[in-house]
Write a protein that binds this DNA or RNA. Structure first.
Lengths: 330, 330
DNA sequence: ACAGCCTGCGCAATCGGTTGTGCATATGAG
DNA sequence: CTCATATGCACAACCGATTGCGCAGGCTGT
C-alpha cells in the first residue's frame, strides 16, 4: 500500500512540505536543484499525490462525468463503447478519470444528485433530446459541460459528427447512382440526432433537385414491428431505396426483406448511417456512413478538460466522416 | 452552487460541527431532538456533505472502479451496457459512484495507476482471462475486488452466470431434440468464459451419452473469416447443429448460411449463447440462452460494496438463466 | 556602502469533513 | 441521598494536500 505522503517526503528530505508540493506542481519559486531532488525522490519511491486531499485543497475532483442514457439498449452499437474509450483516453492523458452517471429521459435526478455531490469537475452529455432537461440543469448549475450531439440551447459547447453533411452527401450519392424514390426510417424524433439526420437527408434531396415531399418519412420507428410496417409501406408506396438512420433499423429491414424474398439491391436498395459490424457480414454489404466515435469521445473529453482549466474553446466542433459505398446501393 | 458546509449548519443551529456530523451519520450519541433539528435543517437547505472532504477524513472515495477491456469491440452486445446499468443501480443505492478503468489485455498500467491513485474503494473486474494479470495485481494490492467471470485464482470473490449449467442444459436439450453431431464455435480461448462454455457444452454431451470427441470444436474464432471457415468445415464434417458461444458468432454464421443457401433448421440447426436483439429478428428465430446481465452487474457492485464495508460475503455467486427454445433448433 | 529587488524556502491557514477524548448533566440503582 | 453509569455535546486533532504571506540572504545599481 502506498502510504507515502507529502509530509514523509518533506521529513526525509529535510525540507518543508510546501517545497515538496511546489516542486511537484512547478508552481512556486523553487531552485532547480531542490526540484530535481524532490522529483528524483518521488520517482524512486513511487509516490503519487493523494487526489482526494489535493481535491479538497483545490476544490477539484479530477473526474469528469459521463451522462449515459440508462434506458436505451440500442445504444449497444460499437459506437457507444468506442466513444467511451475515446473519452477515457483523453481523460487519462490529462490525469482525469471518467465517472458514470446514468440518467433516464424524464428523470434527471441522477444528474442533479451528481451536481450536488460535486464529484466531478465537468460533464459530458452523451446524447441530446429535444428540449433537453439535462442541458437546462447543467447550464443552471454553472458546471462546465459539453454535449455530444446537437442542441438549440444557446451557449452550449458541442462536439458532434457532421451528420448534416454526411447524410446529405450519402443521400445525393444514392440519388445520383440511380435511385429515385427514397424512404427515410428513423427512431425517436425526440432525439436531436434523428432530426439532424432528417435535415441532412432533405438537404441531399434538394441538392439533386428534389424536395422533402418526394420522399417517404417514417419517424419514431423504435420497435421492429414498426420498422417492418414502415418497410412494407415504403415498398408499397414505390420506394426504390430505404435510408436507415441506424444500423439496428437497417438490420431489421434486411431481415424482413430476406424473409419476404425481396432482393437487395435489385428490388430495393438500402443504406445505413453507421458502418458497424452488425451489417458488415451482410451480402451484399450495406452502404453506410463511417464516423469515428473514438475521436468523438476523445474530443469531447479533451474539450471539457480544457474548459475546466479555464481555457477558451470553440463552441462547436464537427467531426469528419466517410461515405462507404457498398453493394446494397449499386 | 451549493456552498453550504457543515460549519455553516453548526453556526446557524448554534451547535458544534461534531454534533452535526454525528446527526448525519447517526454514529455518536445524539439526542433525538437535536438530530431531528439537524436533519430538518439539512432537508430544508438541501445540504449534501462534500464527498471529497468526507473521503479525506475517512480514507474513502465512495467510488468503485469498473475495469473494462479497452480493446474488444465485440463487447458491444447489450450485455455490456446492461451490466453497466446494473452496477450503477447498485452503486447508487449505496451512495457510491462508478469510475471507468480502461484496461488492455497485456497492459495493466491503467489499473496500476488507479491503484496508486486510490480513487476507488474497490474494483469490479468485468472480464477474466486465463492467468489474469489484473487479478494478480489486485490481490497483491489488497484492495477489495470482485470479478465477473471465472478464475482459478484462489480466494477471489466471483459473480458469474451459471455458464456451465446453462450450456450443459442447452446442449443436452438440442441433442434430445434430435441433433446428433454438434459443432462448437467460440472466440478467444484465453478468455475464461469461453473455456467455461466449452466445459458446459461437453457436460451436456456427456449427459446424453456422448463424449467430447463426438463433437467438433472451433476455438479462437475471432474474425468473421475464421468463423466462416469453421462453419464450412463443420458442415463438411457432417455437423447437423452449430452451437455458437456468442451472438456475434451466430450472426456471422447465419449470414454465411443464408449466402450459401443453407436452410435453418432444415439443413443445419443453430443455437447461441445470448438472446440478444442481434438475433431477435432472424427467421427462424435463434434458440439461445437468456441471462440477466443487469442483475449480474447489480450483484457484482452490491457484493463489492459489502466487502468494502467489511461485511462477509460468499466467495462465489452464480446467477440463473433460461434456455429459450426457438425455431432454429426444431 | 546602502536601498531595493529577486530568489528560495518555510510557517501556518485552509479545504470540509470525521473521530477520540473529556466534561457536564441526567438517569438509575441501592 | 449518594454514587455509578449513561447520555448529550463540544474541543481539537486529523486526513493530505495547496497557497498566501513573510523572511532571510544574495544580487544589482548607484
Amino acid at each position: 500500500m502506498n502510504k507515502l505522503t507529502i509530509d514523509d517526503i518533506a521529513r526525509d528530505l529535510g525540507i518543508s512540505k510546501t517545497t515538496v508540493s511546489r516542486s511537484i506542481s512547478g508552481k512556486g519559486r523553487i531552485s532547480r536543484k531542490t526540484r530535481r531532488m524532490v522529483l528524483d525522490y518521488i520517482k524512486e519511491h513511487d509516490y503519487t499525490p493523494n487526489p482526494i486531499a489535493r481535491g479538497l485543497a483545490q476544490s477539484k475532483t479530477y473526474n469528469i462525468g459521463w451522462v449515459v442514457p440508462g434506458d436505451s439498449e440500442n445504444f449497444s452499437l460499437p459506437y457507444f463503447q468506442l466513444t467511451m474509450f475515446g473519452m477515457c483516453e483523453a481523460a487519462q492523458t490529462e490525469n482525469y478519470d471518467v465517472l458514470l452517471i446514468m440518467s433516464y429521459d424524464s428523470d434527471i435526478s441522477r444528474l442533479e444528485n451528481m451536481l450536488r455531490n460535486r464529484k466531478v469537475d465537468g460533464v459530458v452529455l452523451g446524447r441530446t433530446w429535444e428540449n433537453d432537461l439535462n442541458i437546462k440543469k447543467l447550464k443552471e448549475s454553472g458546471l462546465p459541460f459539453v454535449v455530444i450531439g446537437g442542441t438549440d440551447e444557446p451557449g452550449v459547447v458541442r462536439i458532434d459528427n457532421d451528420h448534416i453533411s454526411a447524410c446529405s452527401e450519402l443521400t445525393s450519392i444514392i440519388l445520383m447512382k440511380g435511385a429515385s424514390k427514397l424512404a427515410f426510417i428513423c427512431g425517436s424524433s425526440a432525439q436531436v440526432v434523428n432530426q439532424t439526420r432528417r435535415t441532412g437527408f432533405i438537404k441531399g434531396l434538394e441538392k439533386c433537385g428534389k424536395e422533402a415531399k418526394d420522399a417517404l418519412f417514417y419517424m419514431d420507428c423504435d420497435t421492429s414491428a414498426q420498422i417492418e410496417r414502415a418497410t412494407d409501406e415504403a415498398i408499397r408506396s414505390g420506394a426504390d431505396c430505404v435510408v436507415c438512420a441506424d444500423d439496428y433499423i437497417a438490420h431489421s429491414v434486411l431481415v424482413k426483406l430476406s424473409r419476404d424474398g425481396i432482393e437487395v439491391p435489385k428490388d430495393l436498395k438500402i443504406a445505413s448511417f453507421y458502418n458497424s459490424a452488425l451489417l458488415e457480414h451482410n451480402r451484399p454489404p450495406v452502404t453506410a456512413l463511417q464516423y469515428d466515435p473514438r475521436q468523438l469521445g476523445f474530443e469531447a473529453a479533451r474539450t471539457l478538460i480544457a474548459m475546466i482549466n479555464g481555457e477558451q474553446v470553440q463552441s462547436e466542433k464537427l467531426l469528419g466522416y466517410e461515405v462507404v459505398l457498398k453493394g446494397s446501393t449499386l
